[in-house]
Amino acid sequence: MEDTKPIQARVAKMAAEIESKLLDGDIEDALSCPRFTLTLAIKGIDGFVLANDPTGVALLGDLQMRLNGWLARIDRCLPKMAREMSLREATPALVEILREVPTALEDLKRLSKYASPMAMWS
Rank of each mutant, 00 (worst) to 15 (best):
T39M: 05
G61P: 04
V11L: 15
L31F: 03
P102V: 08
R10W: 04
P34F: 06
T55G: 02
I18N: 11
S86Y: 01
L31T: 03
I18C: 14
L108R: 01
N68H: 14
N68I: 03
A93W: 05
S112D: 08
P6Y: 03
S122M: 14
L78W: 09
M85D: 01
E106R: 14
S116L: 11
E17Q: 15
K113W: 11
D75Q: 02
I7E: 03
V57T: 13
T4M: 14
P34S: 07
L98Q: 10
W121A: 12
R35L: 13
K80Y: 04
T91F: 00
E100F: 03
R35W: 10
L50N: 03
S122Y: 10
D29A: 05
K80H: 11
A51V: 01
V57R: 13
T91R: 15
T39H: 02
L22E: 02
T39P: 01
S116A: 14
W70Y: 08
E17T: 14
W70E: 00
Y114C: 03
D24L: 13
V11Q: 11
S86A: 02
L105D: 02
N68T: 12
D53N: 15
E2T: 06
W70F: 08
V49C: 04
M85A: 06
D26K: 09
T37F: 09
E19D: 12
L78D: 12
E96S: 15
L98S: 06
I42T: 05
G25Q: 08
